[in-house]
Each structure stands twice: as structure tokens, then as C-alpha cells.
Amino acid sequence: MIVLGLESSCDEMAAAVLADRTVRSSVVRSQVDLHAAYGGIVPEIASRDHALHVGFVIEEALEKAKVTPSMLDGVAVTSGPGLIGSLLAGVEAAKGLAVAARKPLIGVHHLEGHIASALLENPAPEPPFVALIVSGGHTSIVLVPELGGPYEVIGQTRDDAAGEAFDKTAKSLGLGYPGGVEIDRLSQTGDPTAFGFPDVMPGRDNFAFSFSGLKTAALRLLERETLPLTGQRLADFCASFQDAVVENLLGKALRATRRSQTGRLIIVGGVAANQRLRERALEKAKGHQVQVYLPSRANCTDNAAMIACAGMVRLARGERSPVGLAARAHWPLQDLGRS
């Protein structure tokens, strides 16, 4: 089966061609440079750039894969959740291509796409497993009985996503955008025990997160410092903050995995590219007798191969979306797979 995937839920316009589980092409146009001056994503700027580039990105993906539209078995597109103007660019282009080529169309939930990113790796985890989905917009622990759902959300953030906390704290430190990458880099030479951060939302049965609390704790600590932090002090602060986020994420995800008795944990989403998270996940998993799966960094950030993969699973089941498919800014993952 050959599927074209499109992803445009936020600030990346991506297209990919998947032939069974082989990625034939994966093109990602990032808008980081466009939004850097604002220290965050500007939805209207994102929408305009998507509308300008969607045709180029699709054609590049098809050309690199040496595939023509007539060879496709389906078109998969992220139809939510996300920024509505951004989503719309990918959804409408996918509808246009599917209608013209008379190919099946399937709308994909963005988070299901992230879960599917683990299936593009070798070895790929066999469901059931637990997924820690951690990015700039989402932080959830999800039980995945099989791809396609229904999914059980074991826990999720009550306020900021982990990636958002990284970016906002980086902004407080005067670092560039996206701040999570900068904190990761500076932490390499920092002491993670130099600053003490609280354990937010503690408790063995509590799988909810609150990264707003950690962000506030960071601001309180910075009030005692001479700003701006520089040199080793800056590296120590970054390492301490990062460690607090990582330990919080992993502690809850590993406990949830043990409780699920699946023995398998996948960590997906943009924050899964964080070096400290990857290292600590593998270290801590041994003590919990859990097998951890970490997608390659290219598959962690938003991409269309993961959307094609999730769409392929649904298309293989005979599922189809109507050509009137609408983008959805809000779409609870729990709604997937419900009859």
C-alpha cells in the first residue's frame, strides 16, 4: 500500500510517501525562522506560509518517492487537533488531490500520528503498549491497545505542555526560540542538582502533569539570581530545570506502564528528541523492567510519515473520510475508535 501523508497542524508543513512501512520520502518545511522574532508561533503567519508552500511540499515528496498520484492507494492528512488555519491548508490540499486522483481520503488525529511514529522504527513495538506523548502542545500518557483505538488517556497535563514549559522558561532566561533545544544544548555542561525544583503533582496514583507549576518555580528561583544568568550558572539552571521535567515525565510514564502490565513504553513527540530524556528513559527503564522505544529524532518532531503510517492502518481497515472532511481545532484523543 502506498499512502501520501500531509501534516500542517502547527508550524510545519510536511508531506511524505509511505510504501507499506518504508518511508519513500519525507519533506518538512519548518517555520521556526518565521516565528523566532516573536518568541512563539503566530497563527496567521503560519497559515499564510502553509498556503504558499503546500503545493511545493507535496510535489517534492512525490518526486523524491518517484510516485505519481495515480500510484497512491490513499491520502492521509492531519485533520486535528491544532491551529485551525494551519490545519485547513493541509486538509484542503489533501481533499483537492484525493478528489482529482479519485483516491481514498483519511483524516488522522495528530496524536495518533505521533503514536504511529514508533511503528516506523525497527524494531517497532507491538501493541498493546503505553505511549508518553510529549511535545510543545501536548503531554499525555496513553494506553494503546492497538493503533486505531480506542485509546485510554491515563494522564495528561492540566495546564502547559512540557515543550511549552521549556520554551517559556527559555524565554525567561533570554534564550532564543525554540527554547527547548537551547536548554537541551546548554544542559550538556550543567549540574542537574544545582537548583532544587519541586516534585509537581506527586503521588503513585497521580498520572496528571502540571508544568505551569514547574515554570512558576523556575521564575521564583530566578528572582533570587542576578540576571541574566550566564556561563556555568546558566548551564546549571538549564540542567536542573530540564532534569525536573524529565524525571517528572518518566516517573509517571514508567509507573503507568508497569500498572498497565504491557511492559512496553513508547516516548514520542518533539520533546522525545531531548537528549537527557532519551538517556534517562533507557537508564530508568531497566529498574522498572520496561522496554522503552524511542523513535529517531526525525520522527519525533512533526512530520508526515507518521500521519501516512496512521492513515495507512485505518485505510487498511477499510475506513474512509468523506471528501467534505473538516479540520478540527479541538479533538479529544479519547473520541477515536468509539463507535
Binding site: 503546500v54 498520484p69 482529482a100
Partner: peptide
């Protein structure tokens, strides 16, 4: 309407990939 304009344009860009 920005949204309306993007609906027409993006749909046509997808359609024109085939034709």
C-alpha cells in the same frame, strides 16, 4: 476572507498536483 481564500487556493493546489 483570509480563510475562504485559503480554502480555494489550497484545494486547487492539491487538485493541480494531479492536473
Amino acid at each position: 476572507s483570509f480563510t475562504g481564500l485559503r480554502v480555494g487556493l489550497c484545494f486547487l493546489k492539491g487538485y493541480a498536483t494531479v492536473f
